[in-house]
């Protein structure tokens, strides 16, 4: 680059550009937080949902599944599993309970987590809450 464009000009673009976009990002964050109540289904958050999220995290479900498309891609999307299972918490619980300890020969298998009845209820409630977040129409179909 020629002398016309100096190092200090490059530095100013870096400082000025960064500052501007950091501030813009913070303002957008503030605005997003103000708008979230319209879409994030917070009115459905109960103590049971909170426990369900903890069960979700402490069994590392996201290590195989995705939730709203984020996570691992080894097992089905669960953001809409409540709807895929016919809007049934019982179906989710039954699936979790019936996982064979030693897996299914030759197939991808989900571990048997031996959850208590309370934990099973909670995880199902958490997945129901997740499925009712307004995610701009995603996923494209019920398969997730």
């Amino acid at each position: 680059m020629s002398e016309v464009f100096s190092k200090s000009m490059a530095r100013n673009i870096y400082f000025g550009g960064s500052l501007f976009f950091v501030l813009l990002f913070l303002s957008l964050t503030w605005h997003t937080n103000r708008e979230l109540p319209k879409t994030d289904n917070r009115q459905a958050i109960t103590e049971e949902v909170a426990l369900g999220k903890k069960v979700w995290e402490e069994n590392n479900c996201v290590g195989c599944h995705s939730l709203l498309g984020e996570g691992a891609y080894f097992a089905p999307e669960l953001g809409n599993v409540y709807k895929r299972f016919g809007n049934s918490k019982e179906a989710i619980k039954a699936f979790l309970k019936s996982r064979p300890v030693n897996g299914i020969p030759g197939r991808r298998s989900m571990p048997q987590f031996n959850l208590t009845e309370e934990e099973l209820d909670a995880i199902a409630e958490f997945l129901k809450y997740s499925s009712e977040i307004d995610a701009a129409g995603w996923p494209p179909n019920i398969q997730g």
């Binding site: 479900c61 195989c64 897996g103 571990p111």
Partner: peptide, 12 residues
């Protein structure tokens, strides 16, 4: 699918 299961499941 069940390689090393259940000793080292995929998520681990």
């Amino acid at each position: 699918g069940d390689f090393l299961f259940p000793e080292i499941p995929f998520n681990v």
